[in-house]
């Protein structure tokens, strides 16, 4: 088991190295750069380019060097000092710019993950034990639309409904007075009050898919011999379902975190843009459009770190929970 964990960790480190490379190249591949555009703009405006600043930046990040040198100049400080580079557009280091937004992205994503499971598990249990009942059909029907509605559309519809019927604008994760306030218990509470809307919007598609997977898993498991064996020895139905089929169906659900988490991070990105939440999404969009290289690379990198770590955790959780995998890995 120890070896397995060590191996997984090493693998994740390797993956993250690869991610940084891929991210950096993708971000830098589009022709042109922020600096070039800026210089052009200045020229067009007729003001002489403030070349000292541009030259400094070019030199600092090796912008006139080949891409692999640029990469090394980016990843080096990142690894040694946690320096994510400099935002050309915002004229400040990247890390303080994204730190808070990253934290909120993590909070919203984790809350969505919890929401998905908290809603999906009871519904799937109900649907599977009441197959073909009205409730089962209703949830299946809702699930189909939950799966089919892109999250940005859901966010839009949510906003319209809130505005039209309740007269409130659901945008934001904080009330105005807390928006730029330092962290305090009151600010945390304010965040908690604002969480439900984005969490529901982000979590809907995931909830629908988890219900679907878990329900069919459970129905499969109900047919299994060991369930009949357990029933034949007199175990009560509710205990039986939780101990045998449910516990068994939980494994694919846990391994599904690996696909669910990237989906949730994707969803939170676009929902944050639509609802104007102070998360990484809007900043990422803007930095991509403006070619603000280090901001885009930093955000993309950190979002990937999040999902890759999520997959790692789900793998370890699975190995811990499922004796079959434990054997396979230890042998």
């Amino acid at each position: 088991m120890g070896r397995y964990i060590a191996k997984r960790f090493l693998y994740v480190l390797f993956v993250l190295g690869l991610v940084s490379l891929v991210v950096f190249y993708i971000i830098n591949l589009p022709p042109g750069s922020w600096i070039e555009n800026y210089a052009l703009e200045l020229e067009a405006a007729g003001s002489p380019a403030d070349s000292s600043e541009l030259t400094f930046l070019r030199g600092r990040y090796g912008l006139d060097q080949p891409l692999h040198i640029q990469y090394l100049r980016w990843i080096g400080p990142l690894l040694t000092e946690g320096d994510f580079g400099y935002s050309f557009e915002w004229r400040q280091p990247v890390w303080p710019l994204i730190a808070d937004r990253l934290l909120l992205t993590v909070v919203v994503s984790l809350a969505s993950l919890v929401f998905v499971y908290a809603v999906a598990i009871p519904i799937a249990l109900y649907s599977a034990t009441h197959q073909y009942s009205f409730g089962d059909y209703l949830f299946s029907f809702l699930g189909i639309f939950g799966l089919a509605t892109p999250s940005f559309l859901l966010a839009l519809v949510f906003m319209v409904i809130m505005l039209r019927f309740f007269g409130v604008s659901p945008g934001g994760l904080f009330s105005p007075e807390y928006l730029n306030a330092p962290w305090s218990p009151a600010r945390v509470w304010d965040l908690l009050i604002h969480l439900p809307v984005p969490v529901i919007v982000v979590g809907t598609a995931g909830t629908a898919s988890v219900i679907r997977i878990l329900r069919s898993q459970l129905l499969d498991e109900f047919q299994k011999q060991y369930v009949i064996t357990a029933r034949a020895k007199g175990v009560s139905e509710s205990r039986l379902i939780l101990k045998y089929p449910f516990r068994m169906a939980l494994n694919p659900i846990i391994s599904n975190i690996g696909t669910l988490l990237p989906a949730i991070v994707s969803g939170s990105t676009i929902v944050a843009i639509v609802l104007g939440l102070p998360m990484t999404g809007p900043l990422l969009l803007r930095s991509i459009i403006a070619q603000d290289t280090y901001v885009a690379a930093g955000i993309l990198m950190m979002l990937s770190v999040m999902t890759v770590l999520g997959v790692l955790i789900s793998d370890l959780l699975l190995a811990w929970l499922d004796p079959r995998i434990r054997f396979e890995k230890s042998n």
């Binding site: 991610v19 993708i26 990237p262």
Partner: peptide, 20 residues
């Protein structure tokens, strides 16, 4: 596995910026 563990949409956004 590697590609699947990455957040799709942000990656799509970055890739879409490649289209001149």
């Amino acid at each position: 596995e590697f590609l699947q563990s990455l957040p799709t949409l942000p990656l799509w956004m970055a890739l879409a910026a490649l289209v001149p």
